[in-house]
Amino acid sequence: MTVTTMTADAPIRYPADLHQALEQMLAVLAQERQALSGLDIDAIMGCAVGKAALCSRLEAVPAEALDEECRGMVDAARRLNEANRRVRNLIAANVSARLDALTGAPAIYRARAGEVRAHHARTARAR
């Protein structure tokens, strides 16, 4: 009996490979959650690379290859990814609010964009 070790970029050919890849995805998503909570940018980027590599491997798997257990893992991964996305968005909103407070003029670029649109509208009518 030959035992093969699967590399990170190996194609998924067997149900066991699919289970392992989905387990790895769940682990990476859990690591990402920890990295987000600790604001560890290196770990966040590492998780992003890991997720992209796993997605590349998983995208070639036909939907009919998923058994009930795999469907459950896919659903769990989907929920974890959504939760992580919400945390990332909250962090980004918090950073924006802090930057706005620091400058004392919130969303300067948005106000300026309105002025630019108004100027373009006025000059278009004048032509």
Rank of each mutant, 00 (worst) to 15 (best):
A27S: 09
M73A: 06
A65I: 00
E23K: 12
Q31H: 11
A35K: 08
D40C: 02
A35R: 06
S37V: 10
R110K: 11
E23T: 14
A93M: 06
C70S: 12
A16F: 10
V95P: 02
A105L: 12
A93T: 05
H119R: 14
R85C: 09
A35D: 03
A43Y: 02
P15W: 01
M6I: 11
Y109Q: 13
R127W: 07
A21Q: 10
A111Q: 13
M6E: 05
R78V: 01
P11Q: 00
A111V: 11
N89E: 15
A83N: 11
A111P: 05
A65N: 02
V49K: 13
R127K: 04
D9C: 07
H19Q: 15
P11M: 00
L80S: 06
L18H: 08
E68N: 01
E23Q: 15
L102D: 08
G104N: 00
V3A: 10
R33A: 15
A121M: 03
T123P: 11
M45L: 14
L54D: 03
A10K: 08
V87C: 04
C70A: 13
A30M: 12
H119M: 15
A126G: 05
Q24A: 07
A43M: 03
E115S: 14
T123C: 11
L80A: 09
L29S: 00
Q31I: 03
A27L: 12
R79I: 05
D40L: 02
S37F: 02
T103A: 13
M6V: 08
T5W: 06
A83H: 12
A16R: 12
L26I: 04
I108C: 01
L66M: 07
D17E: 08
A83E: 14
A60G: 05
E64W: 08
R13T: 15
V49F: 07
A53M: 11
A76P: 01
M73I: 00
P106F: 06
A76Q: 09
M73K: 10
R88F: 09
L99R: 11
G46S: 03
D17P: 04
E64T: 08
Q34Y: 08
T4W: 06
E23P: 02
